[in-house]
């Protein structure tokens, strides 16, 4: 079980790097969706004994993060008729390398932090920190609104991994509430994206900086 968990964490880390290194927004949407599905599987493996509500919340998380949210974003992308992030602030390859350095750093620094509650999860803290930082890099260095939403989703994934440390303690209601918030925010941003696109005929958020009379 521990081995499967560790393999999943490593796959999540790899997906981070590929999300940072990919210029096509549709591919990044797919990568983030895959990461969401992996995250939904994690709590199933970590619980000692499964109860019905836990399976239900996991299924809800998988279907939301793996199907619904990517579907909404893919539709927004199709409406905007745009394929790739043209010129990010930091190039694709440099941001991948920064992501890998961050991964290495997180592993060096946070391996000292011992998750006292669980012995089987030495990778949780470094993985979550790395995922949060990868999301942060995506958020800050990309200019297209949809890429920034993807960064936000990756960041949220990282926080979700951190919350797995408390997997026995977080009530179901809280998890469902977070998922609902996420869905609503992605929904709203997709609508906003559509409006930005219609008003400026571009999704570049830099254009939103200047006021117009």
């Amino acid at each position: 079980m521990n081995d499967v968990l560790n393999a999943l964490f490593v796959l999540i880390l790899t997906l981070n790097l590929f999300a940072l290194g990919n210029g096509r927004i549709l591919s990044v949407i797919r990568i983030v969706a895959a990461q969401g599905v992996l995250l939904g599987i994690l709590p199933l493996l970590m619980h000692e004994h499964l109860t019905f509500p836990e399976v239900l919340s996991s299924a809800a998380a998988i279907s939301l993060k793996g199907i619904v949210i990517p579907g909404i974003m893919a539709k927004a992308l199709r409406d905007a008729q745009m394929k790739r992030e043209v010129e990010p602030l930091v190039g694709l390859l440099p941001s991948t390398i920064i992501g890998a350095l961050v991964t290495a750093l997180a592993f060096l620094v946070f391996s000292r932090v011992d998750p006292a509650s669980r012995s089987d999860a030495s990778l949780i803290i470094p993985t979550s920190i790395t995922t949060v930082l990868a999301g942060f890099i995506l958020l800050t260095t990309r200019f297209k609104a949809l890429s920034q939403v993807l960064g936000y989703l990756v960041l949220e994934n990282g926080i979700y991994i951190f919350s797995l440390l408390l997997v026995e303690a977080i009530p179901l209601v809280v998890e469902m509430g977070i998922l609902l918030d996420l869905l609503v925010s992605v929904f709203i941003v997709s609508i906003i994206t559509n409006h930005i696109n219609r008003a400026f005929s571009s999704l570049d958020t830099r254009r939103l900086a200047s006021l117009k009379e």
């Binding site: 521990n2 081995d3 499967v4 560790n6 490593v10």
Partner: peptide
């Protein structure tokens, strides 16, 4: 034990 994570990365 505990070598699965690096092995997955290496295989990729």
């Amino acid at each position: 034990a505990g070598s699965v994570a690096p092995l997955v990365l290496t295989v990729l």
